[in-house]
Design a binder for these strands. Structure first.
Lengths: 150, 150
DNA sequence: ATACAAATGCAACATTATTGTATTTAGAAA
DNA sequence: TTTCTAAATACAATAATGTTGCATTTGTAT
């Protein structure tokens, strides 16, 4: 489920990160916290179409720097943005979770719960971060496909 | 090491996929087979700067459709292209390997050898493909960083 | 209430990708 | 070899995405 927060909490978040409480920022926050999937850049732009495109880019950038959201590219290379779970810090993201890209509805899910197995790389490679992408059908779409009715 | 092939083999590859043997296609093939890393779209364009940009896009697209190369987005969302290993077929890629993106030299390595552990997703998710990204230092760059001299 | 830094809005521009069409070319057929 | 045709390339135009600089507005500390 989506993380439910009210406007006061969003204002607190901004204050905590030394960001001014502005209407565009609050709207972006509340939009992203109302969903349990990442939002694509095109979607964000069309939903927030009265906010200047450049402003939106800048809001997303500061939010990412501050560890409020993280950026993830879907299988088409399109930027998607999702709220970070609690333990992200400024300039140090803990987004080593699995990103699931549904091939039907195109939604990107962040599966935080999943623990990523440790991988051993060939000699010489010094990995610092991992991200796993899976594609296929999400619960909603797989249900549709196999359901007797509909 | 890079897979070494000569021009005759490239011509065979094209013929096998019912593609005409043209100079631009052969040049793209030989360029990509000469490297052991993926090539970014910007790099491709600057190296192949006398081939029309649109032609390059179309060549990359058919090669991908035919299973000759695969596209991988690096951590910045930039498209990178790499030759597929043997068992890729038309419209059915087997690129479930690990992509290693070096944070220093920006190169993307396809680590085919590595076997990907099976992951269990939350109920309802029906994964069809996995890709793992790792970022960090590649052998060349990690050596540079720790070397006494240089 | 004022002042100032920060944020927004706007204009211009850069890069990456797509579509349509005329021209050229590879390869098959005569 | 020459001719023919579908395929491939080149070129022009446009769309989508992302960036930079600067003037204006706004949040907030004083």
């Amino acid at each position: 489920m989506a993380q439910v927060k009210n406007n006061y909490q969003f204002e607190d978040m901004l204050q905590k990160h030394n960001l001014k409480k502005t209407a565009p920022r609050l709207r972006v926050l509340s939009m992203m916290y109302s969903k349990n999937t990442a939002t694509s850049q095109p979607d964000l732009e069309s939903v927030m179409n009265d906010i200047d495109r450049v402003t939106l880019y800048r809001i997303l950038n500061v939010f990412e720097e501050k560890g409020i959201i993280h950026k993830v590219f879907d299988l088409n290379g399109t930027a998607n943005y999702a709220v970070c779970h609690s333990d992200c810090q400024e300039n140090h993201h803990h987004d080593e979770h699995l990103h699931f890209n549904c091939t039907a509805c195109k939604n990107v899910y962040c599966l935080n719960e999943l623990n990523i197995p440790k991988l051993t790389l060939p000699a010489g490679f010094e990995p610092q971060a991992f991200t796993i992408y899976a594609s296929g059908l999400c619960p909603k779409c797989s249900k549709k496909g196999t359901a007797k009715t509909n």
